[in-house]
Design a protein around this nucleic acid. Sequence first.
DNA 1: GTCTATACAGTGATAGAC
DNA 2: GTCTATCACTGTATAGAC
Lengths: 172, 172
Amino acid sequence: MGYEGASFGQITKLTGISKGSLFHAFPGGKEQMAAEVLLGIDEWFVKNIYEPLETGAPNAALAHMWTQTDKYFRSGGRVCLVGAFALDATRDHFQGTIQTYFTRWMHALTGCLMRAGADATEATAFAEQAVLSIQGGLLLARAVNDQTVFTRTLKRLAASAETLLACQNPPR
Amino acid sequence: MGYEGASFGQITKLTGISKGSLFHAFPGGKEQMAAEVLLGIDEWFVKNIYEPLETGAPNAALAHMWTQTDKYFRSGGRVCLVGAFALDATRDHFQGTIQTYFTRWMHALTGCLMRAGADATEATAFAEQAVLSIQGGLLLARAVNDQTVFTRTLKRLAASAETLLACQNPPR
DNA sequence: GTCTATACAGTGATAGAC
DNA sequence: GTCTATCACTGTATAGAC
């Protein structure tokens, strides 16, 4: 529903928890709730995406990223909250968190590709294109009500990574 | 600000038009205002993007699309309202309009590429990837506060189209 | 056509009963 | 900790003066 659309009325209706209880748990109100949701998202990505990319074996980490990304976004059945926040005025309330989410993902992916033998320029360009394609794929899948848009996007990206690494590590 | 964030208070503050006048012009309230904004967007895209792609000389129409897209989105300084609507519950109020915006763009682009000699499967895949990359590029540019993300995206797409058509129309 | 005045539901937030 | 009651305020919407 977005930040503005997620009113207390909606939250109480869908959770069964009254406003009083919500304010007891989150004295900072809606802003705190959203911040903690974003924190939870960040923790998931650090553990399941960024750290494997940063420390794991490059090819395995890359394969892991595609499957985990597909899993997290339910094969296109779910949208990225960070991306949705980025598109309206909500961005200004959570600028640092939103920016870090994307830059860290791109940076981790770039590093992984370079450890796999890719050139720095090409790795950076691919990481940017991959992260932006994931967001665009989720958006388009929801817009046209067809999850296969997202799964096709992920497949194209994986194939494109294969090509990139094959060219940079030519067989002899 | 998104649909929910764009309250009457904001609209009157930013336009200087009172609520009474707004309801005189738009008896249907905010929903009608949004619908007419979407209609205006659609008309712009029909005239400046879809029709040139559908009827113009393929290579010129393609080049025209990149420049017009860059112009409309102010080189990444502006976000796509249709895309923003697609990501939250607003989508359900304007489903048909949102879906048509994207499907018509993809269809027009696919047709143009095929008239330029591209294979149907590759043309369809490229059109999907292009439309989704434009949305993702706008989102990421705003998220990391760097318009160059969008201009780079557009450049990569144009280059990718060149490659696609060069492969399908091999020089002899 | 524009404005002011007003209605009334819904908003985020607080206090206090249990 | 949970709830209900209540707050001040903003939201959409309407009526009527100019």
